[in-house]
Design a protein around this nucleic acid. Structure first.
Lengths: 340, 340
DNA sequence: CTGTTAGCGCCTTCAT
DNA sequence: ATGAAGGCGCTAACAG
């Protein structure tokens, strides 16, 4: 049987209160000799404090939750890294959970936070719906959302500046590289990041008065395979684009595959650019030109917002929600040439 | 203030026990009408059950913990995927934690499990030491170890069959491809996976009576950069190997980089093979020949072992520890040719 | 079917 | 510096 604080108290000849103090943050308020005795007994009995009981008594868990749509690939692990870094230095434990495969994200949220195993939650969601909104509205713990969804004014929010990133890349292709025939492989329609990236692309074309061609804008799914399929469609058009702007690096990798399979050589025959700047892009040949996203920074910023909330949750004047955009940059590789 | 089961009981005019039943697994044992009334009150008061209290009362959390050395790269996320899959279908929540960067793994274990926030733990560790062993020996919850460390007979254990994988690959290079000049870039000395891979390599050379050359066995660190450095050393030797067997795909990728930088062409000038078969290897050019490891399967198997333990923890006859090895295979790419 | 009553293990005033 | 005692919110016998 596990030893409890009560066993310790009895064996050490003190009260449970003293044991609690000796082990907790009030170490100083107990005589060194007593404390030593208590610690010795703890060792003898292999005492392991029960955090559940502690949490119940203190009404806080010292942990924050991170809910991700999935835990796969560099993108998400880098978010985790950013969150973990700040959580750790703020003395919070991190609990990561994913709404993986079969499990839909709503369910995950429910199981995870409605039951308050954590003091606060960082939620990353690609899209919103009534159901989720309703659950969120009932939330009792602070919550920070990572998403590019508009509205949501009542929550702290951090997002990638998808619009600006896509706009800048498109502008770079047009202005610096003199391209006009630029196709886009977009992410899923219901994914807000994807939507904003597409908007940025379209806006840049408009700005430079380049006509938008429907057949050069393909919706896909952010996977490598999706990129393969979409690009093979683009490359089989009678009028082909000169450059393909994939809305993420995975799909750009799919374009490489297709190009190779179809006998096109990048960048000479077809230019390819991506978005995200995930690690493995550097191993693509030719090196991928892409939009740089400070992924771990997203996690850091979100966590800082959450910790601020947690700190403030005592005082009753709630700070108004913050909305932070993480800026992007352009990484110039060798996957697209200047137009002839 | 959060509503408690007590508030519900009062407002619904029933006892807390009835509320607990109506909401829990004994739904059936309460009259439908009563239950409905209770559910309505719950809605009205936006009642969120407190899982902490529940855990304390039930003495179980319904969650298992997964402790990884880090959460970065495909290898670890695929482990997570395997674990999550089984945990989910077994109705357990998964809590992932990493002993990331500054935090050493021991500390992580301490914070994570000694305090029994979980019913059981899956621990992945690259190496063992006294300190860790001592902590583990004091463990009160079931624990499954993912590691190729020998000994450890008292724990359920799952490991990659590193030895066999490395042996088979080396044998393939020798027997099928007629190579004799095979160098190895190993992982860290204190990493057990690395050690077993090296042993497999050495054993195969011995079996085929190929002399072992110290200068062709280099210790590195499983990173891309490590692979770069190690391979540049190999390629600057007066007598160069024909093939480099990198102990993981990351380091193999580093070899590609170096080879390119130094003007060697794979596979014509130098053969390169790896270990792990992580996703991005398929994007290397030429396609990487490597040892296939069923990574998600590691997670699945480990989780099944843990769930079995948890199921049995009621009965007092403990099943004897199981030790499962996950077999490997060889993926033939284009990164090494038959010897001339 | 439902209520009563103890805990679960720890923390935290309030006294001493 | 320490002890006594009452929660924290929920579950689980045991009665009715």
């Amino acid at each position: 049987m596990k030893a409890t604080i009560y066993d310790i108290a009895k064996k050490a000849g003190v009260s449970t209160a003293t044991v609690s103090r000796a082990l907790g943050e009030e170490r100083e308020r107990v005589k060194p000799k007593t404390r030593e005795k208590i610690l010795k007994v703890c060792k003898d009995l292999n005492y392991q404090p029960n955090r559940i009981a502690k949490n119940l008594a203190k009404k806080s868990t010292g942990a924050i939750g991170l809910v991700l749509p999935e835990i796969q690939g560099d993108f998400y692990t880098e978010i985790i890294r950013g969150v973990d870094e700040i959580a750790y230095s703020g003395n919070y434990n991190l609990i990561v959970s994913s709404s993986h495969s079969r499990r839909n994200i709503v369910e995950s949220i429910l199981g995870f936070m409605r039951e308050s195993m954590v003091d606060g939650v960082i939620l990353m969601i690609p899209s919103m719906n009534r159901q989720i909104e309703e659950i969120l509205s009932k939330f009792l713990t602070p919550i920070v959302i990572i998403s590019d969804i508009e509205g949501l004014g009542e929550y702290d929010k951090v997002s990638i500046d998808n619009y600006q990133g896509a706009y800048s890349m498109t502008e770079y292709l047009i202005k610096s590289l003199k391209h006009k025939k630029i196709a886009a492989i977009c992410g899923p329609r219901d994914n807000q990041d994807a939507t904003m990236r597409k908007k940025g692309y379209v806006a840049a074309l408009k700005k430079y008065k380049i006509p938008i061609r429907k057949e050069w804008i393909i919706e896909s799914d952010f996977t490598i395979e999706g990129g393969e399929i979409a690009s093979s469609r683009l490359l089989s058009l009678s009028e082909k684009p000169d450059v393909i702007f994939a809305a993420n690096d995975n799909m750009a990798a799919g374009c490489y595959k297709t190009a190779e399979a179809l006998g096109y050589k990048a960048p000479e025959d077809i230019g390819i650019v991506g978005f995200d700047h995930i690690a493995f892009g550097a191993f693509l040949k030719p090196k991928l030109t892409t939009v740089h996203v400070q992924v771990p920074e997203i996690g850091r910023v979100a966590t800082n917002l959450l910790l601020d909330r947690l700190k403030d949750s005592g005082s009753n004047k709630k700070a108004s929600p913050k909305n932070i955009k993480i800026s992007t940059g352009i990484i110039i590789g060798d996957s697209v040439l200047k137009a002839k």
